[in-house]
């Protein structure tokens, strides 16, 4: 299994632990990643909020570069995946727009390769089996709310990945590593991340609702696959707790971090210092309090 890897801008900065854990986990599971040479930003929300053509053209450049190395693309970030996949669909239309865009690209995208979210190959039966057999320290007793948010599964017409109303891929990964996915009905609600720098008031309410539902479902932690969701749920948790008078105490993990933890990869220790909400209570619950790592950083 080999893919063209699209890390995206966040995985190189605010979500570095998502990028690092992705690389570590894929290596351990025998999923080969080749970074797309000279990939560029997918345009995220801002491109499609201002110009439909730009929103197709920006990802199309990276798709052309991936086609050149002849590999299907995986993107760990839900937002990048969504933009790349939408561009794939628009370009495969082979209409005027595709022609116009290809005329600006030195490496054309003709539709010969496709895009998948990283958790798609990571949740196939074959990889899940491997993951279970590589799990040296199962996360037994840890209740986790699998949070998919919007961009991994919607709109289903374009993405065609998992069930848009009750997605299961992250839940299945959690089961494979011995954790206990909780039943909850906000797993695909929007946390408002696209307004994280602009309408903080809206973000507070939307993120609060997600956190509250996770808490009420009995979860000890949240697992996600989107840097925007993670940033929102983790970084804003304290201020939201203060505003609404609730102490959530819900660490927000990338699913790949939990996989690395369960496989007992040495890299896992480096992730925890990047988290805003204390991960210790959750890790203590499964007997993995990173006392030493914490002491080193203090």
């Amino acid at each position: 299994m080999k893919f063209a890897y699209f890390p995206g801008c966040s995985l190189h900065s605010t979500a570095k632990e998502f990028g690092d854990s992705t690389v570590a986990v894929c290596k351990a599971l025998g999923v080969e990643l080749q970074e797309i040479p000279d990939w560029s930003c997918c345009g995220a929300t801002s491109a499609h909020a201002t110009s439909h053509e730009l929103a197709v053209a920006l990802p199309a450049r990276s798709l052309g570069l991936a086609e050149k190395i002849g590999l299907d693309v995986v993107a760990p970030c839900a937002a990048c995946y969504n933009r790349l996949k939408s561009a794939e669909a628009a370009m495969k239309d082979k209409g005027e727009l595709a022609e116009k865009i290809n005329s600006t690209l030195s490496d054309k995208y003709t539709g010969a390769i496709s895009v998948r979210p990283l958790i798609d190959p990571l949740s196939t039966p074959e990889i899940l089996e491997r993951l279970a057999s590589f799990t040296r320290k199962p996360l037994s007793g840890l209740k986790v709310a699998a949070y998919y948010g919007c961009l991994l599964v919607r709109p289903p017409k374009v993405l065609g990945f998992d069930d848009p109303e009750d997605p299961q891929s992250i839940d299945n990964i959690l089961r494979a590593i011995g954790a206990e996915p909780v039943e909850w009905y906000y797993k695909n609600e929007c946390c408002g991340a696209s307004f994280s720098l602009t309408r903080v008031d809206m973000v507070h309410k939307m993120t609060h609702d997600v956190l509250l539902r996770a808490k009420k479902s009995g979860a000890d932690a949240i697992a996600c696959a989107c840097p925007l969701c993670q940033a929102n749920l983790d970084m804003r948790q304290e201020e939201i707790g203060k505003k609404y008078g609730t102490d959530f105490g819900l660490p927000v993990f990338y699913i790949t971090e939990l996989m690395a933890l369960a496989m007992d990869l040495p890299e896992a220790r480096q992730y925890w210092s990047k988290h805003m909400v204390d991960v210790q209570p959750a890790l203590a619950k499964i007997g993995k309090a990173p006392v030493q790592a914490a002491a080193e950083e203090a």
Partner: peptide, 17 residues
């Protein structure tokens, strides 16, 4: 910073609103 900056600028020129 990417190497293909000229190409990105071209994309903006042709497709941005």
């Amino acid at each position: 910073r990417i190497k293909g900056l000229e190409e990105v600028k071209k994309i903006f020129k042709k497709t941005a609103a």
